[in-house]
């Protein structure tokens, strides 16, 4: 079987932001609890004309640009999200049409809470590895919602990251993959409900940490590696605290985790979270760097990848907007009123 890896990647972060203070002010909460305790300073908010599909399309276009291939070469396009705009009608068809991948393209919409994006990457990787397709797109994208006043409202944000996998012109070769999964009811949203439910502190140790650490230890064991063998580690980041704690417990020094640690300023982009973290790492990675990526999705499970960066990375980094640049520049801050309007949280006549 051929070597398979990432040949192009792209990130899309909306320009709008809301600060923790604005949310806390509305609900009479103490913003410091979120800023210091959970390391959530602000989060991205999709514009009224942005949703999972539009963010996924923009990320995919950037990924194709870096890959240097036309959309028609894409043989499979999978979008992972917990906020697919239609309940019934694929995100993938609209995306595939927009990037010119139709009609010879396989598509599916994935949902696995915050893990759906890495899942899409996992399946595309397998398709390329099996030589069923030449190129495929795996995308994590979300415009996630937390209930007004709930702790999740400080984190649930919007963004997308897209990865083209292939066998030619690889920028980051996939060395190993590993999946770790159990049935754990830590977080869910029933059909027709606007906002998710979560199990409070149960979402920590028995859910996030068990699966994230389980997958990380599993893949490192499979590869015969330790934290010392990696230059960067990217973990799912539902808040600022969890990925840092996971890194520490796995033996990663803080600086190896920080590059892909976006959540304090971005919020939790759910399916986009660890894929966006990886994109920020690829933006600065050097040839030969080794990267561990571990996603986590409630329900619950983790996908893990080990990548080795190739020489070609230097050719593509500047071909599309970088993740940190989108995160740090040109921000437009919203007050809670406009944020509530943007997110459809205001009762209106239909």
């Amino acid at each position: 079987m051929p070597d398979v890896g990432i040949v192009g990647y792209g990130a899309k972060i909306p320009r709008y932001r809301i600060k923790a203070e604005s949310i806390a002010l509305t609900w009479g909460a103490d913003a410091e609890n979120y800023k210091k305790g959970l390391q959530l300073k602000e989060k991205s908010v999709p514009a009224l004309d942005q949703d999972t599909i539009t963010l996924a399309v923009e990320a995919a276009k950037y990924a194709l640009k870096r890959a240097g291939i036309d959309g028609s070469k894409i043989g499979a396009a999978y979008v992972g999200s917990e906020s697919h705009p239609y309940a019934v009608k694929p995100t993938g068809t609209i995306l595939s049409e927009a990037i010119g991948a139709t009609p010879e393209c396989h598509t599916a919409d994935f949902e696995f809470a915050c893990k759906a994006g890495s899942e899409a990457m996992y399946v595309v990787y397998a398709q390329v590895k099996a030589e069923l397709i030449e190129y495929g797109l795996g995308i994590g994208a979300d415009t996630s919602q937390g209930a007004p006043g709930d702790a999740l409202e400080y984190s649930a944000s919007a963004g997308a990251a897209a990865y083209v996998f292939g066998t030619k012109d690889i920028i980051a070769k996939v060395d190993y993959t590993y999946a770790f999964m159990t049935d754990t009811p830590d977080f869910w949203r029933r059909e027709h409900e606007h906002y998710p439910q979560h199990a409070g502190r149960f979402t920590g140790e028995p859910a996030y940490f068990k699966h994230t650490l389980g997958a990380a230890n599993g893949i490192m064991k499979k590869a015969g590696m330790t934290a010392d063998d990696f230059d960067f580690a990217v973990f799912h980041q539902p808040n600022g605290k969890f990925p840092m704690a996971a890194g520490k417990r796995l033996g990663f020094p803080r600086e190896k985790v920080e590059t892909g640690w976006l959540v304090p300023w971005l919020g939790n982009t759910y399916s986009g979270a660890s894929p966006l973290g990886l994109s920020a790492v690829l933006d600065v990675a050097k040839p030969g760097n080794r990267i561990l990526m571990v996603s986590f999705g409630s329900g619950a499970g983790s996908d893990a990848f080990i990548f080795t960066v190739t020489d070609r990375i230097l050719e593509v980094q500047d071909k599309a907007p970088k993740t940190r640049k989108q995160l740090d520049e040109n921000k437009i801050y919203l007050d809670y009123g406009r944020y509530a309007k943007f997110r459809g949280k205001i009762l209106r006549n239909s």
Binding site: A47, L48, D49, Q50, D51, T54, A98, S350
Partner: peptide, 10 residues
């Protein structure tokens, strides 16, 4: 950019 242009109600 690719954007949502309009929504035909809920």
């Amino acid at each position: 950019e690719f954007r949502k242009i309009r929504t035909e109600g809920s």
